[in-house]
Every structure is written in C-alpha cells, then in structure tokens.
C-alpha cells in the first residue's frame, strides 16, 4: 500500500528535476530545507530522523540535492526520505511544505486492529506491518 503523506503523495513519484524545482521554490521563499528519514511510516510518527543539519544558508537547490543523494546512498530502498521546508518567520515558525522523495521498494501497509471494550464498543488502531520487525530491519 502506497503511503500518502505530505504534499504530492497522490502523484507519481517526483523526478530529481522536479524535486530540485520544488526545493528551489522553498529556498526562494527563504525557508530552511531539511532532509528527514524514517522506517516507521505511521501517520502519528511526526518527528523523523534529521539527515545532517537544516540547510539555512544554501542558496541553490544543487546543494540540497547533493545532501539528498548522500542520504539516498545510505538509506534508499530501506527507508522513507522526505524533504521538509521550515519557515522561520515570526508567526509562522513551522513547516510550510513537506513531501516524500524516496520510499522503500515494498510497502506492506497497515493492519487495522479492532479491540472490543466496554460491552459493544470498539476501539480502532492502525499498525504498520513493517513495525513488527525491529528498527533498521523493517524494509
């Protein structure tokens, strides 16, 4: 099952050229671009691991693409990688754009668990199949 998180996730995967254009758009807006990765794609897992440091002073998308390729060398095929752009201006101070740029080859998806409680009530929870494996060995 294809994970749909962040922007563009219902579109076909972006090409490198398209990723670079999006990044340049973020830089032109003065946002700091981050590269993040994880192997726990649960929607409530908000904080992914940061690759390197946020790139505050990069002026051209080529610099970010360079880091992205380094990150891919380490994690492509086994982890999700996303690019997020942080807007530090006053009153925003939050992520303005975030999109997945790399995903594992095989995405098993989520299990829906129903727990019967208090008579006929049901509590639902989702659980990534991949999370049955220990961290680092999931994909």
């Amino acid at each position: 099952m294809r994970i749909t998180q962040g922007a563009f996730s219902f579109l076909p995967d972006l090409t490198d050229e398209q990723i670079a254009k999006q990044i340049q758009y973020c830089i032109n807006n003065g946002w700091a671009v981050n590269i993040e990765f994880t192997d726990d794609p649960h929607p409530r897992n908000t904080y992914w691991e940061l690759w390197g440091l946020p790139m505050f002073d990069v002026k051209d998308a080529a610099g970010v693409m360079f880091e992205l390729n380094e990150c891919r060398k380490a994690y492509a095929g086994r982890h999700y990688i996303r690019v997020s752009a942080f807007d530090a201006t006053h009153t925003w101070e939050s992520v303005r754009l975030s999109f997945i740029v790399n995903r594992p080859e095989n995405e098993p998806g989520f299990a829906l668990e129903r727990q019967e409680v208090d008579g006929r009530n049901i509590r639902y929870t989702t659980r990534p199949y991949a999370a049955n494996q220990p961290e680092g060995a999931r994909y």
Binding site: K59, D60, A62, V64
Partner: peptide, 14 residues
C-alpha cells in the same frame, strides 16, 4: 569532510 561539504553546498549555484 562535513566542513568542506558544508561550504561546497553553500557555494553551489555560485
């Protein structure tokens, strides 16, 4: 290596 790469990243496009 990280130091040099940091500088190179900053200089890209220029």
């Amino acid at each position: 290596a990280p130091k040099t790469k940091e500088i190179l990243k900053r200089a890209m496009g220029g």
